[in-house]
Amino acid sequence: MGKRIDVKDLNVYYSDFLAVEGVTMTVEPRSVTAFIGPSGCGKSTFLRTLNRMHEVIPGGRVEGSVRLDDQDLYAKEIDPVAVRRSVGMVFQRPNPFPTMSIYDNVVAGLRLNGVKGRKALDEAVETSLKGANLWNEVKDRLKKPGAGLSGGQQQRLCIARAIAVRPQVLLMDEPCSALDPISTLAIEDLVNELKTDYTIVIVTHNMQQAARVSDRTAFFNLAATGKPGKLIEIDDTTRIFNNPKERATEDYISGRFG
């Protein structure tokens, strides 16, 4: 698990609107890459191109290439659903299936993929909940509704659901924005543990969080409202925060805009 992502000359469109322009970057395997930048600069839009989630919006399309190791994710023969199995997503707000138990939430993706054996499902639930640091908190109430957990627990349940299908990459779109500081710390600790097995990309508006959890940081910006978002620079996180190459990056990190 944990594959490399290579993006080259990627333009993201919604119908005729160019939302993100000319992104070229490499996301290293088994590491955490953070996307930072002001609202509306294309961070989340670009993130969704990495597992073709942007295509669920009418008119969503790309030009350029996204490769997972040697596989072109946008090749004609590639099924977008298969891409989303390899590249999982955790969203901004915890979204457990409200009518499902904790157990059924975790195995939902496995069942969709045809896994039926009780032993295999039981093992997947325990492994995934342990992987999300949630097992000890919920092991005695697996049949209780997932929506009955606290916000931080729900987000870890969603992470367990995402890793149950054993993806290569885990995308996180502001996973802590709706959480309290203690739950945020739990998710950050979990991200640091998960990177030993997964390639992780996280969008965050919290620059302290980016500095804490990521190995590399990418700064996105846009020239003006209505203009496309662009990647300004990507580098090791310590260099981005201490000695960025671009003035715009330094201005954003220092709080002079954004």
Rank of each mutant, 00 (worst) to 15 (best):
N113Q: 13
V83C: 12
G2M: 09
E21D: 10
R256E: 02
V81W: 09
L134D: 05
I36P: 01
L73T: 05
G255Q: 01
V66K: 03
I5Q: 08
L185H: 14
V56G: 11
A34M: 15
A160R: 05
A218P: 05
A124V: 06
L231S: 10
F35W: 15
F46G: 07
V107C: 07
L68R: 10
G148A: 02
M89D: 14
I78Q: 07
G109D: 12
S150N: 01
A211S: 11
R247V: 14
G64M: 06
G148T: 02
V169M: 10
G37I: 09
S177E: 09
G148N: 08
R84M: 11
Q71T: 13
I159C: 08
D215E: 04
F17R: 14
T249G: 08
L121E: 06
E193N: 05
I240S: 00
V83T: 13
D173G: 09
S254H: 13
C158F: 03
M100S: 04
D72S: 03
G114A: 11
D79V: 13
R4W: 13
V56M: 10
G109A: 11
R161W: 13
P167K: 04
R118N: 11
V191L: 10
P80Y: 03
T249F: 14
G258S: 04
K245Y: 12
L171I: 14
G59S: 02
F241K: 02
N192C: 08
V87K: 01
D235T: 01
V32P: 00
L170E: 00
Y252G: 09
A160P: 03
L231T: 02
A211K: 13
G151N: 06
L121I: 10
R239D: 03
T127Y: 02
Y74Q: 08
L50H: 05
D6L: 11
G88V: 02
K116G: 05
R247S: 12
D6C: 08
T24F: 07
A82Q: 09
V23L: 07
G131F: 07
F257G: 05
L47K: 14
E174A: 11
L231Y: 07
Q155I: 02
A160F: 12
N113K: 15
E174G: 13
A210D: 09
A224L: 01
A108E: 09
A211N: 10
T184W: 05
L171K: 07
I200K: 00
L73E: 00
I57G: 06
A75L: 10
G40H: 11
T238E: 08
P58C: 04
K76P: 12
N192M: 12
R239G: 00
R166V: 04
V12Y: 04
L170D: 00
L112T: 09
G2P: 15
D236C: 06
S39Q: 06
V169H: 10
V203E: 15
L231Q: 07
G146V: 07
M100L: 15
G131N: 04
L170P: 00
E126N: 01
F241M: 04
A147P: 00
A211E: 08
L47N: 03
L194W: 04
